[in-house]
């Protein structure tokens, strides 16, 4: 993320504008999280509860309904597919972003072209990508499925993100580390595994987080490319039109919990690594006599 700006040196009285802006910020956060928390609460509706407040009791009824497959479609299957697909996208994105990021440190033939290709595919409306891949598969008479065409469709979205993050990470990576590795007799392979990857690990975890969550929640690109078997967001999409019970909210709560687990794991491990590496230096002890 951004290089944090240094804290202001003076700690005087805060200007009036601070309180105004802080209020604005609080409102924005409420706007961001308020409605979301409403559905999380509503997903615990009692069995007779409806789509809005008031709560009629508190229960896990709708979560049970979700897994019971009564009228909610193939929830468990979609859930499993989404997780597996997200794991696939994560692995491919991480590997390719690292390799591409390393390659981009030198200008190579076509590097500008690849760069613009990545940017274009990042801002391309998702449904166009989905349509294009769907039509391509139709043209070549290949069955679309979640682990081929949908995987590809999602990669057009996660790879550019991964690449941009690697740019940011590598721009702060000191090449002297690699040279030191070479100087100490490491082979290229050893330099990569023992030096580059561990040092870049926080950034790589960031790429993984993007790869996982962007894939797990991806909808417009996947819609036309997933083939016969749905992924979770498509299941939710289907439910918005035909399910009118809090089961929908329960599903929302479950997917969000998964997302939050991913976020917590990723950010937590990044924070852990950063803290481990940035512990405050010990006070200067005069080890060894002044010569």
């Amino acid at each position: 993320m951004a290089g944090p700006a240094p804290a202001q040196p003076q700690f005087g009285k805060r200007p009036k504008s601070f309180y105004f802006l802080a209020g604005f910020f609080a409102l924005f956060v409420a706007f961001l999280y308020g409605p979301m928390s409403a559905i999380y609460i509503l997903s615990f509706q009692g069995p007779t509860g409806g789509l809005t407040f008031p709560m009629r009791g508190v229960s896990l009824h709708w979560f049970h309904a979700l897994f019971a497959q009564e009228r909610t479609g193939d929830f468990a299957g979609a859930f499993a597919r989404s997780l597996l697909l997200a794991a696939l996208v994560l692995s491919v994105t991480v590997v390719m972003s690292i390799l591409a990021g390393m390659a981009f440190r030198r200008r190579f033939f076509g590097s500008t072209f690849v760069f613009y290709l990545a940017i274009a595919s990042l801002i391309m409306p998702g449904i166009l990508v989905g349509l294009g891949i769907g039509l391509t598969f139709q043209l070549f008479e290949i069955q679309t499925s979640w682990f081929t065409s949908a995987l590809g469709a999602q990669l057009t979205w996660t790879l550019p993100f991964g690449l941009l993050i690697m740019f940011a990470v590598l721009s702060r990576f000191n090449r002297a580390f690699e040279e030191a590795g070479r100087d100490l007799g490491a082979s290229n392979w050893q330099i990569f595994w023992l030096v580059v990857v561990p040092i870049l690990l926080p950034g790589i975890i960031g790429v993984a987080l993007f790869g996982f969550t962007l894939s797990y929640d991806e909808f417009p690109r996947t819609l036309l490319t997933a083939g016969a078997q749905n992924t979770l967001p498509m299941e939710i999409w289907g439910m918005t039109t035909n399910v009118t019970s809090p089961a929908l909210y329960a599903l929302g709560t479950v997917t969000t919990v998964v997302s939050f687990i991913a976020i917590t794991l990723a950010l937590g491990s990044i924070a852990l690594i950063q803290r481990r590496r940035a512990r405050r230096p010990a006070p200067e002890t005069q080890s060894g006599p002044a010569a």
């Binding site: 000191n174 002297a176 580390f177 030191a180 100087d183 100490l184 007799g185 561990p198």
Partner: peptide, 21 residues
């Protein structure tokens, strides 16, 4: 030749100590 084959060792300006080790 590679640095090790030369019998040279370099100390970098920023020291380039591996931060994870």
């Amino acid at each position: 030749k590679a640095p090790v084959e030369r019998g040279t060792a370099m100390m970098f300006q920023s020291y380039a100590l591996f931060p994870h080790l």
